[in-house]
Amino acid sequence: MNISRNAMEVATALVTALAGAAVCYGAMENGIGWTESGPKPGYFPFAIGCLILIGSTATLGQVAWKSLAAGPAGESGHADSFINGPGLRTLAAFFLPIVAMTAISAWLGLYIGMALYIFYAMYFAAGFRLYSSLLTTVIVVAANFIVFEKLFMVPLLKGPILEYFGIY
């Protein structure tokens, strides 16, 4: 799978345009007029949303104009790649475990999420041996626990398992 830069430009501009439309819509709830004593709460947000829409549309236009100018063959630099298949896979292999860690943390607490993630990253991703992976995991989790819970008294989310074992 190869994503061209142009495709990504278009996709991004569409997403920002959508965000702009959402901002406009959200601002409508607060009143977008200008009263005698200055703007209503939604006045600026509405203008901001409109400007995002305008900027996104102009960017879309620019991309379209450039790719037309480059010709259908796309021989110039505008058709270069944003990311290629292997690149995307590496990226996903790094990012998705972080997403998984967050999902697990929301359920079982940050320390367990962190432990599973570090173990995964060391053992499966970095290819460490089992014992050194386990050791690293224990060190990282313990260091975080001591720094946050004990030294600086910033409580992180514990989750049901730690609560069960009386760690709070």
Binding site: A19, I48, G49, L51, I52, G55, S56, A58, T59
Partner: peptide
């Protein structure tokens, strides 16, 4: 793009 960026920040 600068316009979009700054306005998203405001939003």
């Amino acid at each position: 793009k600068t316009l979009v960026s700054i306005m998203l920040g405001f939003a």
